[in-house]
Design a protein around this nucleic acid. Sequence first.
RNA 1: GCGGACGUAGCUCAGCUGGUAGAGCGCCAGGUUGUGGUCUUGGAUGUCGCGGGUUCGAGCCCCGUCGUUCGCCCCA
Length: 417
Amino acid sequence: MQPIQPARGTRDLLGEEQRRHAHVIETARRVAGLYGYDEWVTPIFEDTRVFSRSLGETSDVVSKEMYSFPDRGGDSITLRPEGTAAICRALVTNGLTQSLPQKAFYAGPMFRYERPQKGRYRQFHQVGAELIGAAEPLADAETIALGRDILRALGLENDVALELNTLGDAQSRADWRAALVGYFHEVADGLSEESRKRLERNPLRILDSKSPADQALVADAPLIEPFLSEPARVFWDQLRAALDGFGVSFRHNPRIVRGLDYYSHTAFEFVTEKLGAQGTVLAGGRYDGLVADMGGPQTPAIGWAAGVERLSMLLDHAPAAPSGIAVVPAGDAAEAMAAQVMQTLRAAGLRAEMAYRGNLKKRMERANRIGAPFAVIVGESEAVRGVVQLKNLADGTQDEVPIVGLAARIAGACSAR
RNA sequence: GCGGACGUAGCUCAGCUGGUAGAGCGCCAGGUUGUGGUCUUGGAUGUCGCGGGUUCGAGCCCCGUCGUUCGCCCCA
């Protein structure tokens, strides 16, 4: 019989990989807490309209990458491809548009039907932060600072660089886009085949094309700055000043555009050179129209999402596996006593384990294998005297210690190490 | 969705111009009846991803398929 494999683009997370993931998520959650964020947990699937309405009909995410299917009632359901739209939907459905601003942190699986690669899976995991109800550049700067601080807390500060751009407000963006389309039409003969298609569907995307031929033409493409409206220009200036205030350094990259339609003003990416084509590690921007798309009032918002898989791969060291105290009965008759001792240790907050079978030698081998710092050897002759053998597995020393106070003794020794 | 590479033991891999499969690590058992690590002796690894084809004979060649991987598209 052939073993059944995990579905394409999905995988199991255990051991070291699981610890890396957990460390990324816990770090992000903790730092977001310092910034005043609460965690929101929204459903893993939603009414398809939550995404089709918000992401823009032209984006590939909607046109071919969503996991959508009809449920038994005939409604179209979609496994969430990203987090922001659902957060906005939750804001509206819970009436929180009446108590702004809201700061939402989230972590969990997302789903996109695409060709898997390293660091890109059909089920992948993101952490994200959304600040809803603040229109000031100060909010953008603080949100970006949060991302930077999480990366810093993960020890990745030197591996990533922040690239920043403005997309202007709706009018600025429309004017700039028209100019871009005009320019690229003029030089269309020199564009790559892909970019000629993009010119019809999603012209902004030509700007970050990887084709060298495109890059040469992009260099002379009109920049957005002349098209910025006065308010958009002021916003852009204030944002950069505010980032200085938060001590966040960045590089202006006029070619950054965001893939999803709902962004305006601020767009940013933390990128790394270390992951090949999957170099964007944390990215986001301002999306002032999205809450209204969800049926709420016009509400400004700024946020980002980060890929947990990609961050995990960048981590220098996986967090160490936890190790517990090995409780070892000397002989079957001591097992009950050993179980009691083990429960005492657990009650004192210590991780403790006992093998289910094997003689003393076998169980000592296992104690060594699980990386236990100490073995507590429970023998019949000692047990009647209320003592056990406490063996330090690092240096091989062994003491007879009373069961009363054993947990405190071990805890003290562990913290002293 | 498009193009390239790769699938051999639990893991990392070797396997000659086609001749019935190997190493290291790990695992199991003994040397040690109440003491791990080091050492030592022995043992089991497996439909060579799967299906078809060529051949007297296929891990090796051909086709298909599934999976992984590197890029493209897109995107975190």
